[in-house]
């Protein structure tokens, strides 16, 4: 039995299994090193990086909701330079694909940020968070407009050199396939989907929003059917590989995303169930595959019968 995943095309990306950890839920990896062997994971996507350090949003930033959570952390991070000098050297990058997730406010800044990361040998790929406003275009979200999404993709591709570029799509759109096709056309090597769903929560007694930013991103098993639908649609719409995510909390969930066509998955909010969750999931997936007599994930992938 093999859990190996090789992404087709020119990406050169290989994972020893399809389980990656999602940005923002696994820190910079080192936080979870006491709880498992990082090199057993398919890969990790680190906390979103910006060119300059960002303080993020005021508190409270997170709230537990039924089968999930809301967050509006606001991409607090200590900046790309700090990541490269302080965090990256602590990761076993020779045995573990480390994917840098990036965030910027205009295409030029995306390019600049990518160039910094492209020079780092320890970075396996760059994942682009396009669920952010373009300050030059009146704050329209890059991820909600096919042209804007394509423009970011081009800027990142141009600066990325040989590094594969993964575009992370937002589900907060009318038709996710138009964005998917736009980024594929602009040269994206891989698509990952979905980012969080826009949501909010309120406290009826205090008459206050649950998080200071009022609106935040919903994640967790509550969004899994939406994530699965998006992954299914995107897989059908494009020919580049897709990494699915959204509410994955079991080995069965992993297979659901692979069944609809995803090459790999990312585990997010479930990492908060327990810090060794993703490490255990790798083993549980092997057990489930054995139980179901799946010897080749590639054979199983996309085999949904309609």
């Amino acid at each position: 039995m093999s859990t190996n995943v090789t992404l087709p095309g020119s990406t050169g990306l290989q994972f020893k299994n399809p389980i990656l950890t999602a940005s923002g839920t696994f820190g910079y990896g080192v936080e979870f090193a006491p709880y498992g062997d990082l090199t057993t994971l398919g890969g990790i996507v680190v906390k979103g990086l910006s060119l300059e350090p960002r303080a993020g949003n005021p508190m409270p930033r997170i709230a537990e909701t039924p089968c999930g959570m809301l967050n509006a952390v606001g991409l607090q991070n200590s900046g790309v330079e700090n990541f490269i000098t302080e965090k990256l050297p602590k990761l076993p990058t020779e045995q573990l694909p480390v994917i840098a997730n990036i965030y910027a406010c205009d295409p030029a800044e995306f390019g600049e940020l990518t160039a910094v990361l492209a020079a780092e040998e320890g970075i396996a790929a760059i994942e682009v968070n396009i669920s952010c406003p373009n300050v030059q275009e009146g704050g329209i979200l890059f991820g909600q407009d096919p042209q804007q999404a394509a423009r970011v993709t081009e800027a990142v591709k141009k600066a990325a050199g040989v590094k594969p570029v993964i575009i992370k799509l937002s589900p907060n759109v009318t038709d996710i396939t138009t964005i998917a096709k736009a980024v594929e056309g602009a040269g994206a090597n891989v698509i990952s989907c979905i980012n969080t769903l826009s949501g909010m929560g309120v406290d009826i007694r205090k008459r206050k929003p649950l998080i200071a930013n009022v609106i935040g991103g919903l994640s967790g098993p509550a969004i899994k059917p939406v994530a699965l639908r998006c992954t299914y649609q995107v897989c059908k719409a494009v020919s580049i590989p897709v990494i699915g995510m959204g509410g994955i909390a079991s080995a069965e969930d992993v297979l659901e995303f692979i069944l609809v066509g995803a090459h790999a998955v990312q585990v997010g909010t479930a990492n908060f169930l327990r810090p060794d969750f993703s490490f255990r999931l790798v083993k549980e997936l092997e057990e489930l595959m054995e139980q179901m007599n799946i010897t080749d994930l590639e054979e199983y992938r996309g085999s949904l019968q309609l």
Binding site: G27, P60, E64
Partner: peptide, 9 residues
């Protein structure tokens, strides 16, 4: 949420 420094909540 996490207790280990990752969620920034």
């Amino acid at each position: 949420a996490c207790g280990v420094g990752a969620c920034l909540g």
